[in-house]
C-alpha cells in the first residue's frame, strides 16, 4: 500500500466508523484527531487491521491531566500510531471525564500497550478496561495517588522515611 496524507487517513477511518472521529485539528506541528472514548477499541482495531492504514506500531501512550477545561475537568490519553509498512503516522486523542477516566485497553491489539497503559494508570490514573494486569509499574506497589495529576500532593513520609526536608 501507499503512504497516505493525514486527511486520507481520517477519511478511511470515517468510511468504516462514521461516528468515531469527533474533532480534527490538522494545522499544528503534530496534527491529531479526537476519537470518541466509547469507540476507541473498534477504531484501534481498524487502524491496525485495515491494509490502507496498516498502523502496526504503537509508538507511545501518554496521559495528560486538564483539571480546568471549559468543557469540564478532563484527562486526555494520546496515542501515537505509526505504520512501518505504509510509512505514515497519526496522533489520536481520547478525552475522558476526570472523575472517572475509563477507556478500552488496546493491549490485545498492540503488545506495546501493556506497559504503556500501566504507566499511564500509575502516573495519571486512567483505568484501562480489559487490561490483564493493571498494576503500578513505576511507583512502589502500595503508593497512594497518581503523581502526575495537577492536584497531587506528595506524602510527608513513606514507610517511615521522611519525604520533606525543607
Amino acid at each position: 500500500m501507499a503512504r497516505l496524507e493525514i486527511g486520507q487517513i481520517i477519511a478511511v477511518i470515517k468510511e468504516k466508523l462514521p461516528e468515531a472521529v469527533v474533532e480534527e485539528i490538522l494545522d499544528g506541528v503534530d496534527p491529531f484527531v479526537v476519537v470518541k472514548a466509547e469507540q476507541w477499541g473498534e477504531t484501534a482495531q481498524l487502524c491496525r487491521d485495515d491494509s490502507r492504514l496498516g498502523f502496526d506500531l504503537l509508538s507511545c501512550i501518554s496521559g495528560v491531566d486538564y483539571p480546568e477545561r471549559e468543557e469540564g475537568p478532563e484527562i486526555e490519553v494520546i496515542y501515537h500510531l505509526d505504520s512501518t509498512v505504509n510509512h505514515h503516522g497519526i496522533t489520536i486523542k481520547v478525552k475522558l471525564p476526570r472523575s472517572d477516566p475509563r477507556v478500552a485497553s488496546v493491549e490485545e491489539i498492540w503488545r506495546t500497550a501493556d506497559w504503556h497503559e500501566r504507566e499511564t494508570y500509575d502516573l495519571v490514573g486512567v483505568i484501562f478496561e480489559g487490561h490483564h494486569n493493571l498494576v503500578r509499574i513505576l511507583c512502589a506497589e502500595d503508593w497512594v495517588g497518581h503523581p502526575l495529576r495537577k492536584d497531587y500532593e506528595p506524602p510527608d513520609s513513606f514507610h517511615g522515611i521522611k519525604n520533606v526536608i525543607y
Binding site: P155, N163, I165, Y166
Partner: peptide
C-alpha cells in the same frame, strides 16, 4: 529535593 515525590531525600535516612 523539592518536587521529587519518589526520591528519598538522602540515603542517610536509611
Amino acid at each position: 529535593v523539592k518536587h521529587g515525590y519518589h526520591v528519598v531525600k538522602g540515603v542517610d535516612l536509611l
